[in-house]
Design a protein around this nucleic acid. Structure first.
Lengths: 202, 202
DNA sequence: TTATGACTATAATCGAATTTTAGTCAAATA
DNA sequence: TATTTGACTAAAATTCGATTATAGTCATAA
Protein backbone atom coordinates (compact mmCIF):
# COMPACT_ATOMS: atom_id res chain seq x y z
CA UNK A 1 0.00 0.00 0.00
CA UNK A 2 1.54 3.28 -1.02
CA UNK A 3 -0.23 4.98 1.79
CA UNK A 4 1.63 3.18 4.54
CA UNK A 5 4.94 4.37 3.14
CA UNK A 6 3.62 7.88 2.79
CA UNK A 7 2.42 7.71 6.37
CA UNK A 8 5.80 6.63 7.64
CA UNK A 9 7.50 9.41 5.72
CA UNK A 10 5.27 12.03 7.25
CA UNK A 11 5.89 10.58 10.68
CA UNK A 12 9.62 10.79 10.11
CA UNK A 13 9.28 14.32 8.80
CA UNK A 14 7.46 15.32 11.97
CA UNK A 15 10.24 13.81 14.07
CA UNK A 16 12.86 15.58 11.94
CA UNK A 17 11.11 18.88 12.55
CA UNK A 18 10.89 18.00 16.24
CA UNK A 19 14.62 17.42 16.34
CA UNK A 20 15.16 20.80 14.79
CA UNK A 21 12.81 22.71 17.08
CA UNK A 22 14.02 20.98 20.21
CA UNK A 23 17.63 21.81 19.48
CA UNK A 24 16.73 25.36 18.53
CA UNK A 25 14.03 26.43 20.99
CA UNK A 26 13.41 23.62 23.48
CA UNK A 27 10.36 21.55 24.29
CA UNK A 28 8.14 24.21 25.77
CA UNK A 29 8.54 26.66 22.93
CA UNK A 30 7.95 24.04 20.29
CA UNK A 31 4.29 24.16 19.26
CA UNK A 32 2.20 21.71 17.30
CA UNK A 33 1.32 24.55 14.92
CA UNK A 34 5.02 25.07 14.24
CA UNK A 35 5.51 21.39 13.51
CA UNK A 36 2.53 21.19 11.15
CA UNK A 37 3.70 24.30 9.32
CA UNK A 38 7.26 23.03 9.03
CA UNK A 39 6.14 19.68 7.65
CA UNK A 40 3.53 21.28 5.41
CA UNK A 41 0.46 19.49 6.74
CA UNK A 42 -2.56 20.59 8.71
CA UNK A 43 -2.44 20.66 12.47
CA UNK A 44 -5.08 17.95 12.75
CA UNK A 45 -2.94 15.66 10.61
CA UNK A 46 -0.20 15.67 13.20
CA UNK A 47 -2.63 13.86 15.46
CA UNK A 48 -3.06 11.12 12.88
CA UNK A 49 0.52 10.10 13.66
CA UNK A 50 0.89 10.95 17.34
CA UNK A 51 -1.62 11.17 20.13
CA UNK A 52 0.01 14.07 21.98
CA UNK A 53 2.91 16.47 22.06
CA UNK A 54 4.47 14.36 24.76
CA UNK A 55 4.31 11.29 22.57
CA UNK A 56 6.10 13.17 19.82
CA UNK A 57 8.97 14.05 22.13
CA UNK A 58 9.20 10.52 23.51
CA UNK A 59 9.17 9.04 20.02
CA UNK A 60 11.91 11.44 19.09
CA UNK A 61 14.03 10.22 21.99
CA UNK A 62 13.22 6.63 21.09
CA UNK A 63 14.54 7.28 17.64
CA UNK A 64 17.83 8.56 19.04
CA UNK A 65 18.21 5.55 21.30
CA UNK A 66 17.38 3.25 18.40
CA UNK A 67 20.23 4.82 16.49
CA UNK A 68 22.60 4.15 19.38
CA UNK A 69 21.45 0.55 19.64
CA UNK A 70 22.00 0.11 15.93
CA UNK A 71 25.54 1.46 16.19
CA UNK A 72 26.28 -0.76 19.18
CA UNK A 73 24.97 -3.77 17.30
CA UNK A 74 27.21 -3.02 14.35
CA UNK A 75 30.24 -3.06 16.65
CA UNK A 76 28.96 -6.19 18.39
CA UNK A 77 28.98 -8.01 15.07
CA UNK A 78 32.46 -7.01 13.96
CA UNK A 79 35.01 -9.77 13.48
CA UNK A 80 37.39 -8.75 16.24
CA UNK A 81 37.95 -10.13 19.74
CA UNK A 82 35.10 -9.80 22.26
CA UNK A 83 37.46 -7.79 24.43
CA UNK A 84 38.07 -5.21 21.74
CA UNK A 85 34.39 -5.06 20.82
CA UNK A 86 33.32 -4.47 24.41
CA UNK A 87 35.86 -1.73 24.69
CA UNK A 88 34.66 0.01 21.54
CA UNK A 89 31.05 -0.34 22.56
CA UNK A 90 31.60 1.32 25.90
CA UNK A 91 33.35 4.25 24.29
CA UNK A 92 30.69 4.51 21.61
CA UNK A 93 27.97 4.63 24.19
CA UNK A 94 29.54 7.38 26.23
CA UNK A 95 30.54 9.53 23.29
CA UNK A 96 27.27 9.07 21.43
CA UNK A 97 25.36 10.40 24.39
CA UNK A 98 27.83 13.17 24.92
CA UNK A 99 27.36 14.31 21.36
CA UNK A 100 23.58 14.12 21.63
CA UNK A 101 23.62 16.30 24.66
CA UNK A 102 25.93 18.77 22.98
CA UNK A 103 23.35 19.02 20.23
CA UNK A 104 20.51 19.76 22.64
CA UNK A 105 22.28 21.92 25.17
CA UNK A 106 19.70 24.67 25.14
CA UNK A 107 16.68 22.45 25.28
CA UNK A 108 17.71 19.52 27.40
CA UNK A 109 16.80 20.67 30.87
CA UNK A 110 13.49 21.79 29.51
CA UNK A 111 12.82 18.42 27.92
CA UNK A 112 14.01 16.38 30.87
CA UNK A 113 11.92 18.42 33.25
CA UNK A 114 8.79 18.08 31.17
CA UNK A 115 9.11 14.38 30.53
CA UNK A 116 10.92 13.28 33.68
CA UNK A 117 8.44 10.68 34.95
CA UNK A 118 7.99 9.07 31.56
CA UNK A 119 11.71 9.19 30.86
CA UNK A 120 12.58 7.44 34.09
CA UNK A 121 10.33 4.57 33.11
CA UNK A 122 11.94 4.34 29.69
CA UNK A 123 15.47 4.59 30.96
CA UNK A 124 15.15 1.25 32.65
CA UNK A 125 14.00 -0.15 29.34
CA UNK A 126 16.84 1.48 27.38
CA UNK A 127 19.30 0.25 29.97
CA UNK A 128 18.11 -3.33 29.68
CA UNK A 129 18.22 -3.24 25.90
CA UNK A 130 21.74 -1.90 25.86
CA UNK A 131 22.79 -4.47 28.44
CA UNK A 132 21.36 -7.20 26.22
CA UNK A 133 23.61 -6.17 23.36
CA UNK A 134 26.72 -6.10 25.55
CA UNK A 135 25.76 -9.40 27.17
CA UNK A 136 25.94 -11.19 23.82
CA UNK A 137 29.56 -10.14 23.39
CA UNK A 138 30.43 -11.05 26.97
CA UNK A 139 28.91 -14.48 26.47
CA UNK A 140 31.02 -14.98 23.38
CA UNK A 141 34.12 -13.99 25.30
CA UNK A 142 33.29 -16.48 28.00
CA UNK A 143 32.73 -19.23 25.47
CA UNK A 144 36.11 -18.39 23.94
CA UNK A 145 37.50 -18.70 27.49
CA UNK A 146 38.83 -15.14 27.43
CA UNK A 147 36.46 -13.71 30.03
CA UNK A 148 35.89 -14.91 33.58
CA UNK A 149 32.66 -16.74 34.29
CA UNK A 150 29.51 -15.05 35.54
CA UNK A 151 26.04 -14.08 34.43
CA UNK A 152 26.65 -12.13 31.18
CA UNK A 153 23.61 -9.92 31.61
CA UNK A 154 24.62 -8.97 35.16
CA UNK A 155 28.15 -8.25 34.04
CA UNK A 156 26.88 -6.11 31.19
CA UNK A 157 24.70 -4.13 33.61
CA UNK A 158 27.71 -3.58 35.82
CA UNK A 159 29.70 -2.25 32.89
CA UNK A 160 26.94 0.14 31.97
CA UNK A 161 26.48 1.31 35.55
CA UNK A 162 30.16 2.01 35.89
CA UNK A 163 30.23 4.09 32.72
CA UNK A 164 26.94 5.81 33.42
CA UNK A 165 28.54 8.57 35.40
CA UNK A 166 30.40 9.57 32.27
CA UNK A 167 27.18 10.15 30.41
CA UNK A 168 26.32 13.80 30.48
CA UNK A 169 22.72 13.56 31.60
CA UNK A 170 23.07 14.86 35.10
CA UNK A 171 24.47 17.50 37.35
CA UNK A 172 27.93 16.34 36.38
CA UNK A 173 27.46 17.40 32.78
CA UNK A 174 29.44 20.59 32.83
CA UNK A 175 31.90 19.23 35.31
CA UNK A 176 33.01 16.79 32.67
CA UNK A 177 34.26 19.47 30.39
CA UNK A 178 35.71 18.83 26.99
CA UNK A 179 35.11 15.87 24.77
CA UNK A 180 38.76 14.87 24.89
CA UNK A 181 38.60 14.77 28.64
CA UNK A 182 35.61 12.46 28.51
CA UNK A 183 37.29 10.32 25.94
CA UNK A 184 40.27 9.88 28.20
CA UNK A 185 38.17 9.14 31.26
CA UNK A 186 36.05 6.60 29.38
CA UNK A 187 39.19 4.96 28.19
CA UNK A 188 40.46 4.55 31.72
CA UNK A 189 37.21 3.20 33.12
CA UNK A 190 36.79 0.80 30.20
CA UNK A 191 40.29 -0.54 30.58
CA UNK A 192 39.97 -1.10 34.28
CA UNK A 193 36.65 -2.86 33.89
CA UNK A 194 37.88 -5.03 31.05
CA UNK A 195 40.99 -5.88 32.95
CA UNK A 196 38.76 -7.02 35.79
CA UNK A 197 36.75 -9.21 33.47
CA UNK A 198 39.70 -10.96 31.86
CA UNK A 199 40.57 -14.36 33.25
CA UNK A 200 43.14 -14.27 36.01
CA UNK A 201 45.63 -16.88 34.91
CA UNK A 202 48.29 -15.51 32.60
CA UNK B 1 39.62 32.61 74.63
CA UNK B 2 36.23 31.48 75.79
CA UNK B 3 34.64 33.58 73.14
CA UNK B 4 36.09 31.68 70.21
CA UNK B 5 34.56 28.47 71.54
CA UNK B 6 31.26 30.18 72.05
CA UNK B 7 31.39 31.47 68.49
CA UNK B 8 32.08 28.04 67.09
CA UNK B 9 29.25 26.57 69.08
CA UNK B 10 26.79 29.09 67.75
CA UNK B 11 28.01 28.44 64.22
CA UNK B 12 27.47 24.73 64.67
CA UNK B 13 24.05 25.37 66.16
CA UNK B 14 23.11 27.40 63.09
CA UNK B 15 24.23 24.56 60.84
CA UNK B 16 22.31 22.07 62.96
CA UNK B 17 19.18 24.15 62.57
CA UNK B 18 19.92 24.42 58.85
CA UNK B 19 20.12 20.65 58.58
CA UNK B 20 16.77 20.39 60.26
CA UNK B 21 15.02 23.02 58.14
CA UNK B 22 16.49 21.77 54.88
CA UNK B 23 15.31 18.24 55.53
CA UNK B 24 11.91 19.46 56.66
CA UNK B 25 11.04 22.33 54.34
CA UNK B 26 13.78 22.76 51.74
CA UNK B 27 16.13 25.62 50.97
CA UNK B 28 13.65 28.15 49.70
CA UNK B 29 11.27 27.89 52.61
CA UNK B 30 14.06 28.08 55.15
CA UNK B 31 14.35 31.68 56.32
CA UNK B 32 17.06 33.45 58.26
CA UNK B 33 14.43 34.52 60.75
CA UNK B 34 13.57 30.87 61.36
CA UNK B 35 17.21 29.99 61.90
CA UNK B 36 17.80 32.84 64.34
CA UNK B 37 14.68 31.91 66.26
CA UNK B 38 15.60 28.22 66.38
CA UNK B 39 19.10 28.97 67.65
CA UNK B 40 17.85 31.64 70.03
CA UNK B 41 19.86 34.56 68.69
CA UNK B 42 18.96 37.74 66.89
CA UNK B 43 18.74 37.78 63.14
CA UNK B 44 21.66 40.16 62.81
CA UNK B 45 23.83 37.74 64.79
CA UNK B 46 23.46 35.10 62.11
CA UNK B 47 25.40 37.44 59.84
CA UNK B 48 28.28 37.51 62.30
CA UNK B 49 28.91 33.88 61.37
CA UNK B 50 27.88 33.71 57.74
CA UNK B 51 27.80 36.33 55.04
CA UNK B 52 24.68 35.05 53.28
CA UNK B 53 22.01 32.41 53.22
CA UNK B 54 23.85 30.76 50.38
CA UNK B 55 27.01 30.53 52.43
CA UNK B 56 25.06 28.84 55.20
CA UNK B 57 23.81 26.14 52.84
CA UNK B 58 27.24 25.63 51.29
CA UNK B 59 28.86 25.37 54.73
CA UNK B 60 26.24 22.87 55.67
CA UNK B 61 27.10 20.74 52.66
CA UNK B 62 30.79 21.14 53.41
CA UNK B 63 30.13 19.78 56.85
CA UNK B 64 28.45 16.69 55.40
CA UNK B 65 31.33 16.06 53.02
CA UNK B 66 33.80 16.53 55.85
CA UNK B 67 32.00 13.79 57.72
CA UNK B 68 32.29 11.49 54.74
CA UNK B 69 35.99 12.24 54.37
CA UNK B 70 36.50 11.50 58.05
CA UNK B 71 34.76 8.15 57.70
CA UNK B 72 36.78 7.29 54.62
CA UNK B 73 39.98 8.18 56.42
CA UNK B 74 39.08 5.92 59.32
CA UNK B 75 38.71 2.99 56.92
CA UNK B 76 41.89 4.00 55.12
CA UNK B 77 43.82 3.65 58.35
CA UNK B 78 42.46 0.25 59.35
CA UNK B 79 44.93 -2.60 59.65
CA UNK B 80 43.57 -4.73 56.85
CA UNK B 81 44.74 -5.30 53.29
CA UNK B 82 44.65 -2.33 50.89
CA UNK B 83 42.31 -4.37 48.73
CA UNK B 84 39.79 -4.81 51.49
CA UNK B 85 40.09 -1.18 52.53
CA UNK B 86 39.48 0.10 49.02
CA UNK B 87 36.47 -2.12 48.76
CA UNK B 88 35.00 -0.85 52.01
CA UNK B 89 35.71 2.75 51.09
CA UNK B 90 33.87 2.50 47.81
CA UNK B 91 30.84 1.01 49.49
CA UNK B 92 30.97 3.57 52.26
CA UNK B 93 31.06 6.39 49.77
CA UNK B 94 28.08 5.22 47.79
CA UNK B 95 25.95 4.35 50.78
CA UNK B 96 26.83 7.47 52.72
CA UNK B 97 25.62 9.62 49.89
CA UNK B 98 22.58 7.49 49.37
CA UNK B 99 21.63 7.95 53.00
CA UNK B 100 22.22 11.69 52.84
CA UNK B 101 19.92 11.97 49.90
CA UNK B 102 17.28 9.88 51.61
CA UNK B 103 17.43 12.37 54.46
CA UNK B 104 16.91 15.33 52.16
CA UNK B 105 14.46 13.93 49.66
CA UNK B 106 12.00 16.79 49.93
CA UNK B 107 14.54 19.52 49.76
CA UNK B 108 17.27 18.27 47.49
CA UNK B 109 16.07 19.43 44.11
CA UNK B 110 15.36 22.79 45.63
CA UNK B 111 18.84 23.02 47.12
CA UNK B 112 20.64 21.76 44.04
CA UNK B 113 18.76 24.14 41.81
CA UNK B 114 19.50 27.13 44.00
CA UNK B 115 23.17 26.41 44.47
CA UNK B 116 23.97 24.65 41.22
CA UNK B 117 26.77 26.88 39.94
CA UNK B 118 28.53 27.02 43.27
CA UNK B 119 28.06 23.31 43.83
CA UNK B 120 29.60 22.39 40.51
CA UNK B 121 32.72 24.28 41.46
CA UNK B 122 32.90 22.52 44.81
CA UNK B 123 32.22 19.08 43.45
CA UNK B 124 35.52 19.10 41.64
CA UNK B 125 37.14 19.98 44.92
CA UNK B 126 35.30 17.24 46.83
CA UNK B 127 36.14 14.78 44.12
CA UNK B 128 39.83 15.56 44.31
CA UNK B 129 39.87 15.32 48.08
CA UNK B 130 38.15 11.96 48.06
CA UNK B 131 40.49 10.73 45.34
CA UNK B 132 43.44 11.75 47.50
CA UNK B 133 42.25 9.52 50.32
CA UNK B 134 41.78 6.53 48.02
CA UNK B 135 45.10 7.18 46.31
CA UNK B 136 46.98 6.66 49.58
CA UNK B 137 45.55 3.18 49.92
CA UNK B 138 46.23 2.35 46.30
CA UNK B 139 49.82 3.47 46.71
CA UNK B 140 50.20 1.19 49.69
CA UNK B 141 48.79 -1.69 47.71
CA UNK B 142 51.27 -1.04 44.94
CA UNK B 143 54.16 -0.89 47.38
CA UNK B 144 53.00 -4.22 48.81
CA UNK B 145 53.04 -5.50 45.23
CA UNK B 146 49.34 -6.42 45.36
CA UNK B 147 48.10 -3.81 42.91
CA UNK B 148 49.19 -3.24 39.34
CA UNK B 149 51.37 -0.21 38.69
CA UNK B 150 49.99 3.16 37.60
CA UNK B 151 49.45 6.67 38.89
CA UNK B 152 47.57 6.14 42.18
CA UNK B 153 45.69 9.41 41.93
CA UNK B 154 44.51 8.66 38.40
CA UNK B 155 43.43 5.20 39.41
CA UNK B 156 41.56 6.60 42.40
CA UNK B 157 39.76 9.06 40.14
CA UNK B 158 38.79 6.24 37.84
CA UNK B 159 37.36 4.28 40.75
CA UNK B 160 35.32 7.26 41.87
CA UNK B 161 34.10 7.99 38.36
CA UNK B 162 32.96 4.42 37.91
CA UNK B 163 30.99 4.46 41.14
CA UNK B 164 29.63 7.94 40.63
CA UNK B 165 26.62 6.74 38.72
CA UNK B 166 25.55 4.88 41.83
CA UNK B 167 25.40 8.06 43.81
CA UNK B 168 21.86 9.31 43.86
CA UNK B 169 22.45 12.89 42.87
CA UNK B 170 21.01 12.83 39.40
CA UNK B 171 18.12 11.82 37.25
CA UNK B 172 18.90 8.22 38.06
CA UNK B 173 18.07 8.71 41.71
CA UNK B 174 14.67 7.10 41.71
CA UNK B 175 15.65 4.58 39.10
CA UNK B 176 18.08 3.09 41.57
CA UNK B 177 15.36 2.07 43.95
CA UNK B 178 15.96 0.40 47.26
CA UNK B 179 19.04 0.58 49.41
CA UNK B 180 19.63 -3.15 49.10
CA UNK B 181 19.63 -2.85 45.35
CA UNK B 182 22.26 -0.12 45.52
CA UNK B 183 24.27 -2.14 47.93
CA UNK B 184 24.31 -5.07 45.55
CA UNK B 185 25.16 -2.93 42.53
CA UNK B 186 27.98 -1.17 44.38
CA UNK B 187 29.30 -4.52 45.41
CA UNK B 188 29.44 -5.68 41.81
CA UNK B 189 31.09 -2.56 40.46
CA UNK B 190 33.61 -2.51 43.29
CA UNK B 191 34.55 -6.13 42.75
CA UNK B 192 35.01 -5.72 39.04
CA UNK B 193 37.14 -2.62 39.48
CA UNK B 194 39.28 -4.20 42.18
CA UNK B 195 39.70 -7.31 40.14
CA UNK B 196 40.97 -5.10 37.34
CA UNK B 197 43.45 -3.44 39.65
CA UNK B 198 44.93 -6.63 41.09
CA UNK B 199 48.15 -7.84 39.55
CA UNK B 200 47.68 -10.29 36.73
CA UNK B 201 49.99 -13.11 37.69
CA UNK B 202 48.36 -15.61 40.02
C1' DT C 1 32.79 45.25 72.01
C1' DT C 2 29.18 42.34 70.70
C1' DA C 3 24.31 41.49 69.78
C1' DT C 4 20.04 43.10 68.20
C1' DG C 5 15.68 43.82 65.63
C1' DA C 6 13.40 47.66 63.16
C1' DC C 7 14.12 49.00 58.60
C1' DT C 8 14.71 48.84 53.43
C1' DA C 9 15.24 47.42 48.92
C1' DT C 10 14.46 43.54 46.42
C1' DA C 11 12.43 39.40 45.27
C1' DA C 12 8.59 36.27 45.59
C1' DT C 13 3.65 35.62 45.47
C1' DC C 14 -0.96 36.48 44.27
C1' DG C 15 -4.94 36.95 41.33
C1' DA C 16 -7.56 38.74 37.67
C1' DA C 17 -7.34 39.63 32.84
C1' DT C 18 -5.39 38.27 28.61
C1' DT C 19 -3.06 35.37 25.46
C1' DT C 20 -1.37 31.04 23.83
C1' DT C 21 -1.78 26.40 22.66
C1' DA C 22 -2.92 21.25 22.90
C1' DG C 23 -6.22 18.58 21.30
C1' DT C 24 -11.12 17.94 18.87
C1' DC C 25 -14.38 17.38 15.34
C1' DA C 26 -17.69 18.91 11.81
C1' DA C 27 -16.92 20.10 7.36
C1' DA C 28 -14.09 20.23 3.13
C1' DT C 29 -11.39 17.71 -0.01
C1' DA C 30 -9.67 14.08 -2.83
C1' DT D 1 -15.83 6.76 1.13
C1' DA D 2 -11.56 7.73 3.27
C1' DT D 3 -8.39 11.47 4.43
C1' DT D 4 -7.19 15.80 5.69
C1' DT D 5 -8.08 20.08 7.56
C1' DG D 6 -8.26 24.41 10.34
C1' DA D 7 -11.77 26.92 13.10
C1' DC D 8 -13.02 26.05 17.68
C1' DT D 9 -12.78 25.12 22.81
C1' DA D 10 -11.22 24.18 27.20
C1' DA D 11 -7.32 24.44 29.71
C1' DA D 12 -2.92 26.08 30.57
C1' DA D 13 0.51 29.65 30.37
C1' DT D 14 1.66 34.46 30.63
C1' DT D 15 1.28 39.16 31.95
C1' DC D 16 1.20 42.78 35.16
C1' DG D 17 0.06 45.55 38.99
C1' DA D 18 -0.62 45.15 43.85
C1' DT D 19 0.63 42.88 47.96
C1' DT D 20 3.46 40.22 50.90
C1' DA D 21 7.70 38.03 52.47
C1' DT D 22 12.46 38.04 53.23
C1' DA D 23 17.66 38.72 52.74
C1' DG D 24 20.73 41.64 54.32
C1' DT D 25 21.96 46.36 56.87
C1' DC D 26 22.99 49.42 60.46
C1' DA D 27 21.94 52.63 64.19
C1' DT D 28 21.15 51.56 68.69
C1' DA D 29 21.14 48.80 72.97
C1' DA D 30 23.23 45.68 76.08
Amino acid sequence: MRNAVQTKEVREAILDATDNFLARYGYKKMTIDDLALAVGIGKGSVYLHFSSKEEIALSHIDRIIERLKRELTIIAERKISPEKRLHLMLLKRVLFRFDSVQHYTQSLNDLLAALRPKLLARRKQYFQEEAEILAEVIKEGQEANIFAAGNPKKIAETFLLATNSLLPFSLTTRELGEREEIEEKSERVAELLLSGLLKREK
